[in-house]
Amino acid sequence: MEHIISVTVENKFGVLSRVAGLFSGRGFNIESLSVAPTLDPSMSQMTIVTSGDERIIEQIVKQLNKLIDVIKVVDLNETEFVSRETAIIKVHTKDVDRAEALRIVDIFRANVIDSTPTTYTIEVSGDPKKIEAIINLLQPLGIKELVRTGRVAVAREPVRPAAVQAKKVARE
């Protein structure tokens, strides 16, 4: 089963290779990995999409925790989470296709971020199914280049019923 694991690490050289080496050395899958600094520049946030049975995921979480440069590990599948991926797609657009391309962009609430007489460069964000869907629709036009960020994800805040919240505010 697919799991999204959020890993907070030290923002130091070599940390990415420690994490990647752990996965390759122990034969764990990485479907995607994205990493960037957090609000605190001494830390980076990694989002790793991986898969495996319960036992393997438990090992992945434990092994990540064991790395000295890893500060925090959260298996997001244990809670509610939202995730997004961005793709940048460069499509060939002949005269007749340019309007069609824009229609597709519109349907998916994507953006054209660069344009030449023969190409559009389209940026789209969403869950992986949405990205797949727009790729499928654009493919007949001719995709010249495609880059995807891999997923980033964050746990959803637990939501209390509005009435309870109101009471709490009143008490305060």
Binding site: R55, Q59, K62, N65, K66
Partner: peptide, 8 residues
């Protein structure tokens, strides 16, 4: 002492 040893 090593959690990874447990249930490996």
């Amino acid at each position: 002492i090593d959690p990874t040893s447990i249930r490996k």
